[in-house]
Simulated scan of single mutants.
Amino acid sequence: MQLDTVVVGHATVDVNVLPHGVIENVLGGAPTYAGFALASLGREVGIVSKIGQDFPDYFPPLFSKFGLNTEGILVTRGGTTKFENTYTEKGEREQVCEEVADPIVPGDIPQAYLNSRSFYFSPVMDEVSPKTLSRISDEENVAMIDPQGLFRRIEDSGEIRLEVPKNFEDYLSQVEIVKIGKDEFRAFGRSEEEVLESLSGMGPDVAILTLGEDGCKVFSDGKVTNIKSLSVEAKDLTGAGDVFGASFLSNYLETGDPTDSARFATAAAGLKIEYKGPTGFPSKEEVKEML
Rank of each mutant, 00 (worst) to 15 (best):
L3S: 13
L3Q: 06
D4M: 10
V8K: 14
A11F: 13
D14N: 14
V17R: 06
P19H: 10
G21S: 07
V26D: 05
V26N: 04
L27C: 09
A34R: 00
A34G: 14
G35E: 13
L38I: 05
G42F: 13
E44Q: 12
V45G: 14
S49D: 04
G52A: 12
P56A: 00
D57K: 00
D57A: 10
Y58R: 08
F59M: 07
P60T: 02
L62I: 02
L62A: 03
K65L: 11
F66Y: 14
L68K: 07
I73V: 12
R77P: 02
G78H: 07
T80P: 02
T80W: 10
E84K: 04
N85S: 12
T88V: 04
T88E: 09
K90P: 00
K90I: 02
E92W: 01
R93V: 14
E94S: 15
V96R: 11
P106D: 09
I109A: 06
P110V: 04
Q111I: 01
S116A: 15
S116C: 08
Y120W: 00
S122T: 08
P123L: 05
P123S: 12
D126M: 04
E127P: 14
V128F: 07
S129H: 09
L133K: 02
D138E: 09
A143P: 02
A143Q: 09
M144L: 14
M144E: 09
M144G: 06
D146P: 12
P147G: 08
R153E: 15
G158R: 03
R161D: 13
R161E: 15
L162K: 03
P165W: 03
Y171K: 00
L172Y: 04
S173T: 01
Q174M: 11
E176Q: 15
E176A: 15
K179I: 04
G181S: 11
E184N: 06
A187V: 02
R190F: 03
L196D: 12
S198W: 07
L199S: 07
D205T: 06
A207V: 03
A207Y: 03
E213Q: 15
V218H: 12
K223C: 13
T225P: 05
I227K: 08
L230K: 05
S231Y: 08
V232N: 09
G239Q: 06
G245L: 07
A246T: 06
S247M: 10
S250K: 00
N251D: 15
T255Q: 10
D257K: 02
P258E: 08
A262N: 14
A265E: 15
T266R: 06
K272P: 13
G280R: 05
E285C: 00
E289L: 08
E289I: 10
E289C: 03
